[in-house]
Simulated assay, not measured.
Amino acid sequence: MRFKNVFSIIGPSMVGPSSSHTAGAVRIGRVARQLLGCQPEKAQMTLFGSFAETYWGHGTDLALTAGLLNFDTDDERIPEADLEAEKAGMELEWVQGRGNGPHPNSVKITLQAGGCKAEIVAASIGGGTIAVYSLNGFDVQITGEYPTIAVTHSDSQGVLASLTSLLSSEGINIGYMDVDRKGRSGAAMTVFELDSAPARVLIEEMLRLPHILEVTMIDLTQRS
């Protein structure tokens, strides 16, 4: 399966008590924050399955909040993430979802900061490993294990060719690519999991390509 790796066996460096409910949740929160591009002002977490049933006791709420604050999995401030969020002026809302969602340990996070919004659906699938199933309403899959670029664009001929050609010209290898579109000639999103993180100048070059609407870098490999 695509979402299995060594972390399923040994787990990440983390603040406990549970790799699924704590480390994985921190990483999900960080993906959501990076998708937004800044610290959120408002955050709504809709929890499903065991996340919804046990999040208070297992510290999932603190872990997700810590991720939104861009803390790493081993950050000693995780147990006080709710206080840190309050200091930062972040409004948090917790909602119990119906059913299990895409996985028993899953959450939908909706963020807002100023006029910017972001939404992800993700799950913690064991040993600190996560699976992200949706970014801003597009059905794509990423793991967070590799530097990832999420590109929102119009579904136009030549867009994917121009994006892959640009990455290749900079010597960056694509480990995985996924595409979702809203309809023919409508909005689309392509995600690239890369073997190495691109320079900021490459992101800027992507934004100058025809039909590109937004480019977002998600990189959990970088320490906060």
Rank of each mutant, 00 (worst) to 15 (best):
D180T: 08
G57F: 12
E119C: 04
V15K: 12
S169T: 11
T216K: 15
E204H: 13
I125G: 11
A85N: 06
Y55T: 03
S156D: 12
K4H: 10
G127T: 05
G49D: 10
A23R: 06
T46I: 15
L47M: 11
Y176N: 10
S185Y: 06
I109G: 13
L47S: 02
N70D: 14
P79G: 08
I130M: 06
G97S: 05
T148C: 00
A161F: 03
Y146M: 03
A63P: 00
R2K: 11
R98P: 04
P104E: 03
V6L: 14
E84N: 08
M217T: 09
G126F: 08
E170R: 13
S8Y: 11
G59M: 05
G186I: 02
P17S: 12
R181S: 11
V26P: 09
T190N: 13
F138W: 02
T221L: 15
G127Q: 02
N5P: 00
T65M: 02
S13L: 14
T190D: 04
K108R: 15
S19N: 03
S162G: 10
Q141C: 08
L92N: 07
L202E: 01
T216N: 05
A197R: 13
S50M: 07
E93T: 13
L35I: 08
F7P: 00
V26W: 10
P104F: 04
E53R: 14
T164V: 07
I174K: 01
V179N: 00
G11E: 13
A52Y: 12
L207C: 01
G67V: 10
G97V: 05
S156C: 10
A161P: 02
P17L: 01
A199L: 06
I28H: 00
E119T: 14
R27D: 01
L83G: 07
K4G: 08
Q157R: 15
T54H: 14
P12T: 13
L36R: 02
I212G: 08
M90Q: 05
L135A: 06
L92T: 14
S196F: 04
K42N: 03
E91R: 03
A63K: 06
S196C: 12
G126K: 13
Y176F: 13
P210K: 05
G171I: 07
